[in-house]
Design a protein around this nucleic acid. Structure first.
Lengths: 121, 121
DNA sequence: ATACCTGGTATACTCTGTTATACTGGTTAC
DNA sequence: GTAACCAGTATAACAGAGTATACCAGGTAT
């Protein structure tokens, strides 16, 4: 009996907490490019042009900007190798992998959605 | 948990297909409000003002716009009851529930993130 | 020699998502 | 009578995400 009341009473509080968590996440991964870039790097793309080529539509400007901010936020590591010509490598941090479940859920949705509207695989 | 995501994310197969699926999904659920609104309605909020109250920061204009578009895209049903005063109910379609896994993954990430930066629960 | 590769930066612009504020027309409560 | 609730619409303005295009300096391939 008491358990029941507790559950009911805490329901709105949980809802508020969940919507806040959701809004936090949207704030962090918001925008058109953040998640595709994370996915690309986690998939093994390390070089600027490789990452760019792997994401249809992204411009150098946007990629550059996002990479810079992601490096600041410890989402990725940027390493410069002093060979000639100089090469730059971007690699994912552990933190970066924490977005894995979100990305997988979104890829899954996208595939099903496409299958649904095109009618084929 | 981490190992699992790492393994799956690192798997370099069908990269192009996956990035497209990801971009499709971002296009559909993009923006600041779509996912919170879906979440709110799936949580049982039916009335305009209830939905608005459940999402901190949203304005009537944005909510109105998003609801309209979501109705067009068959994400929600809008039902007007001719009692006096007229009441309007928004309910989720099956299609709407398909975003469940994405929303749950994002709520989960947001909770962990907050715990991490505040240091408490 | 010239055309394209690398890893970006610079400048200028557009677009639209988002905010702010006020308002409508009807209903119910004090 | 006046204040607050409902379900929104109207108007205007803004900020910044995103686009387009060109460019740099060095190296490589034909």
């Amino acid at each position: 009996m008491k358990k029941e009341a507790e559950k009911v009473l805490s329901f709105p509080r949980k809802q508020a907490e969940e919507i806040q968590a959701l809004q936090d996440t949207i704030y962090v991964v918001g925008g058109k490019w953040r998640l595709p870039i994370i996915n690309s790097i986690c998939n093994g793309n390390k070089r600027f042009r490789d990452i760019q080529r792997s994401i249809p539509g992204i411009t150098t400007r946007m990629l550059s900007r996002e990479l810079k901010e992601m490096e600041l936020n410890k989402l990725i590591n940027r390493t410069v190798y002093a060979d000639t010509p100089v090469t730059v490598e971007y690699t994912s941090t552990d933190y970066c992998y924490s977005f894995g479940p979100i990305i997988l859920a979104m890829i899954d949705w996208g595939k099903k959605h496409r299958k649904k509207i095109t009618g084929k695989d």
